[in-house]
Amino acid sequence: MDTKPWYMSKTVWAALLTGLLGTYQGLDAALNDALPNIPQWVFYVLTGLGLYGLRTADKKIG
């Protein structure tokens, strides 16, 4: 089976962005809402992209 580098994976990028935005929101809460809020729909879109990446994957990450 063919492999691809990790940075070519839609699922990896969706998970990475979701983690970074979640960390941003945690930092925002620690700073008493000093940073702009991220709309909830952004997380829904990233979740959908991650699931889409999983369903359409045809190569393993290697």
Rank of each mutant, 00 (worst) to 15 (best):
Met1Val: 04
Met1Leu: 10
Asp2Leu: 04
Asp2Ala: 13
Thr3Glu: 05
Pro5Ala: 07
Pro5Arg: 10
Trp6Lys: 10
Tyr7Thr: 06
Tyr7Trp: 09
Tyr7Ser: 08
Met8Arg: 13
Ser9Tyr: 00
Ser9Thr: 06
Ser9Phe: 00
Ser9Trp: 00
Thr11Tyr: 03
Thr11Leu: 12
Thr11Asp: 13
Thr11Asn: 12
Val12Ile: 12
Val12Tyr: 13
Trp13Gly: 01
Leu16Asp: 10
Leu16Thr: 09
Leu17Gly: 05
Leu17Tyr: 06
Leu17Val: 08
Leu17Met: 06
Thr18Gly: 08
Thr18Trp: 05
Gly19Ser: 15
Gly19Leu: 09
Gly19Ala: 15
Gly19Asp: 06
Gly19Lys: 04
Leu20Lys: 01
Leu20Arg: 04
Gly22Val: 05
Gly22Met: 13
Gly22Asn: 10
Thr23Met: 15
Thr23Ser: 15
Tyr24Trp: 09
Tyr24Cys: 05
Tyr24Pro: 13
Gln25Tyr: 02
Gly26Lys: 05
Gly26Pro: 02
Leu27Ile: 15
Asp28Cys: 09
Ala29Lys: 13
Ala29Cys: 02
Ala30Gly: 11
Leu31Val: 05
Asp33Thr: 08
Asp33Tyr: 07
Ala34Glu: 14
Leu35Cys: 12
Asn37Met: 08
Asn37Leu: 02
Asn37Arg: 14
Ile38Glu: 02
Ile38Gln: 12
Ile38Thr: 09
Ile38Leu: 09
Pro39Gln: 07
Gln40Tyr: 06
Gln40Trp: 04
Trp41Arg: 01
Phe43Asn: 02
Phe43Tyr: 15
Phe43Val: 01
Tyr44Ser: 15
Tyr44Glu: 06
Tyr44Asp: 15
Leu46Arg: 03
Leu46Thr: 03
Leu46Asn: 10
Gly48His: 03
Gly48Met: 05
Leu49Pro: 02
Leu49Val: 14
Gly50Met: 04
Leu51Met: 11
Leu51Phe: 10
Tyr52Pro: 07
Gly53Thr: 11
Gly53Glu: 07
Leu54Ala: 05
Leu54Ile: 10
Arg55Phe: 11
Arg55Pro: 01
Arg55Glu: 08
Thr56Arg: 10
Thr56Ile: 12
Thr56Ala: 07
Thr56Lys: 13
Thr56Asp: 06
Thr56Gln: 12
Ala57Leu: 07
Ala57Pro: 08
Ala57Asp: 10
Asp58Tyr: 00
Lys59Glu: 12
Lys60Ser: 15
Ile61Glu: 06
Ile61Leu: 15
Ile61Tyr: 04
Ile61Asn: 10
